[in-house]
Nucleic acid binder design. Structure first.
Lengths: 142, 142
DNA sequence: GTTTGACTTGGAGGGGACTCCAAGTGTTAT
DNA sequence: ATAACACTTGGAGTCCCCTCCAAGTCAAAC
């Protein structure tokens, strides 16, 4: 698969794919007549890169991780360790994001209610929060 | 509350708080003898800033949002609209993050299993995925 | 045989959000 | 009165991740 197609499939631009290669993320792309060919395995790797990147792993560390793979069996413990760390980190991110979603949901409720009833009918923030909890059953705490 | 305490409470540094002020996020901090004093309302605003920032809203847009507040009642529709957009965005982020968590959980399972059984006993990736689904009941799709 | 796509090195630019420095001034608490 | 904290302007630097350009070469498809 040529670079343009790999780009289309992964959502990265061709330039970014070359950039990643330069950065040592995918150092062993197969070539035909000097041109990159992306295998299904390469695409899987890129999807993993995307996953790690979007869960907050810097390219530096992704490179470190990917460099462990060709070492096979004996790098399994390190790879496991890295994935466990990332798993833990993602768990925290999920908790945090859920709390933020709650915060924003409260704001939406607040503005909807204020539009219906008028802003000056709303009382102070604590009264609003309490009412929000009563009416929605949500446990928002800010 | 002086800046150092506000910093401690919000997790921002004093420099960042001043930076935010310069950037127009909190243009109306009360002052006493030339020094910033953060009210509980300011802290709430900062927690909201944190929420919006960490859910991907750029400072530019946060500023735009905060600038609507002093306009009171008549900016309610815009504010509601912004919060709704953000809510939708956060929903998508949650879905994505959950999928990523799934991806990483599979990797952890894979490496744990490979460590127990040996890497060469593992077969190809599709076999592994199927087995992972069977054993964990998870619906991973990459 | 021309167009299309891909390649190279090398370097510059850019956005976002800080972060730190100088170098001096002022205020508050003990 | 001295230390601790805070203030100012202005600018430079940093980190991360690209993104784009020049300027030329090469290979494959139609």
């Amino acid at each position: 698969m040529p670079i343009a197609e790999a780009a289309a499939q992964t959502g990265y631009s061709a330039e970014t794919l070359r950039f990643y290669e330069r950065e040592g993320l995918l150092p062993n792309i197969r070539r035909e007549g000097g041109k990159r060919r992306y295998s299904p395995a390469d695409l899987r790797t890129l999807r993993l890169v995307d996953c790690l990147k979007k869960t907050g792993m810097p390219l530096r560390e992704i490179r470190r991780y990917l460099a462990l793979i060709p070492q096979g069996e004996r790098s399994l413990p390190q790879r496991l360790e890295m994935m466990r760390r990332q798993q833990e980190s993602v768990g925290k991110q999920l908790d945090e994001l859920q709390a933020f979603a709650e915060h924003i949901a409260f704001k939406v409720w607040l503005y909807e209610t204020a539009l219906k009833e008028g802003l000056n009918q709303m009382g102070d923030i604590d009264a609003c929060l309490e009412r929000y909890r009563r009416e929605t059953g949500h446990t928002a705490r800010f």
